[in-house]
Design a protein around this nucleic acid. Structure first.
Lengths: 249, 249
DNA sequence: ATTATTTTTGCATTAAATTGCAAGTATATG
DNA sequence: CATATACTTGCAATTTAATGCAAAAATAAT
């Protein structure tokens, strides 16, 4: 049996049984437990199943709570957030996109800030509940249970009626040639409308997302006003971004 | 059985039974009480269940910060909620007003229910995030940081565009003569529009709210289809309500 | 076809995690 | 206060994971 075939079988088995042990898989696939372990690791790296001690389990369909994922790259996001809050001034209308980067920015705002926040992200609202002087406008729509945001035509319509002073945009991928791109279609449409309706767009991107591209195009690089990253970008690339009229920090 | 599988089982068991003791879990999972204790600790650290002396209990479906007001009348609200869920059927569009009574109803829905929920209440969304088959439409607007709901003209506009099969209305005060009334003006406007746009209005009221009145009038009693209370109402009053075409339970 | 190169696989060794037990400590309950 | 119950801690036995290495298989190059 070829490796790919074996891994397909393994995946299917996990999908049916929800979980499986090394020994059981080793017997089923007629290979050593080491090989099963390696297969599991490969499939887990691709996000297809989840490797656990003793075997593998199916990926949980819905995350328990969005706070779980908040822990990824906390320090990098903190760096970006500190850069970002300097752009926010009292009296402004500020839009927060979904995602953990923008969430970190919201959490980094000083408690007494007097701004109007517009968002379609439930986690952002959770943070800002405790900010007495921040007026919060929530953009309604259909609930995305994975991202904890709203989406759909109502959301789009609402975004179009508000022209924010600053819009913080969480970035999936950004590239000089391809612009800003996302993996998710609905997310792309939302971001497109955010960009189109903001006076100033500030994109938040960890350095490893720079120079990558995804299927759905949000906008070209020159539609962005500022890009904030967690680390210094090499001078050559920085110059190329600045040629496009983008401030990169 | 591998650890991950065992912990999944434990989680499920707690979710069903709401609580469990060490011995019981030890027998169910065929491991020592020490191991159960360690599993509980791990799951508790992830926030999935809550460890207590002697075993574990389910996390309250309502997040902590919403719970301040929940202290009072939990059992009464549970009684109302159990009455309420019987009115909900798969395929319906159901509106949930803000407030703890309606929240209790949302929490009492069975996990696999297939309905479309419309609400302007953040706590309701928090509950329904874990309901895989429930489509959730959130009504946007300005954030009310005390009630954790949205309000304002956008909210009203959105409510007007949706005609729910059932609307659950949390009641401040209800009286045969004065009808349904509230203390808060904005809340009154919201409720007014909910009542005007629902096919069937189910009002939720603890018995002590019957026969009281507040400044702002939502609607007269005959605009309500059903009133659910936590205790039997005296027959004379009940008859008077039923004269107005209201089913009272 | 033959050789070289890469990939895959299984095994041995080492490192790490899990588990149950026991002794001591803390907490509840009458 | 006394007693029972539950919790903590350390430890040893067992299981599982990671790593390096060599043989086998597959693939590419000649």
């Amino acid at each position: 049996m070829i490796k790919a075939e074996r891994q397909q079988l393994l995946t299917k088995h996990i999908a049916n049984k929800q979980s499986a042990q090394l020994k059981e898989l080793s017997e089923l696939l007629n290979v050593s437990e080491d090989t099963v372990r390696r297969d599991i690791k490969e499939l887990a790296d691709l996000g297809i199943i989840k490797a656990v001690r003793g075997g593998a389990i199916a990926h949980s369909p819905v995350p328990h709570h969005y706070r779980e994922r908040e822990n990824l790259q906390v320090t990098q996001k903190e760096i970006i957030a500190q850069k970002a809050v300097r752009f926010v001034e009292d009296g402004q209308v500020v839009f927060f996109d979904g995602g953990t980067s923008t969430l970190a920015v919201a959490a980094a705002l000083r408690k007494d800030i007097q701004i109007t926040v517009v968002t379609n992200s439930f986690p952002v609202v959770n943070i800002l509940e405790d900010y007495p002087s921040a007026e919060v406008i929530f953009i309604g729509g259909r609930l995305n249970k994975k991202a904890f945001t709203t989406f759909g035509s109502e959301t789009i319509d609402a975004i179009r009626t508000i022209k924010a002073d600053i819009s913080f945009l969480g970035i999936c991928s950004i590239d000089l040639e391809y612009g800003i791109t996302t993996r998710d279609y609905e997310d792309c449409i939302i971001k497109k409308n955010i960009v189109a309706n903001a006076k100033r767009v500030i994109a938040l991107s960890t350095i490893n997302k720079v120079g990558t591209a995804e299927p759905f195009v949000v906008c070209s690089v020159n539609a962005i006003d500022v890009i904030l990253t967690d680390d210094a970008i090499d001078e050559k690339t920085a110059a190329l971004f600045e040629e496009q009229g983008v401030l990169i920090q």
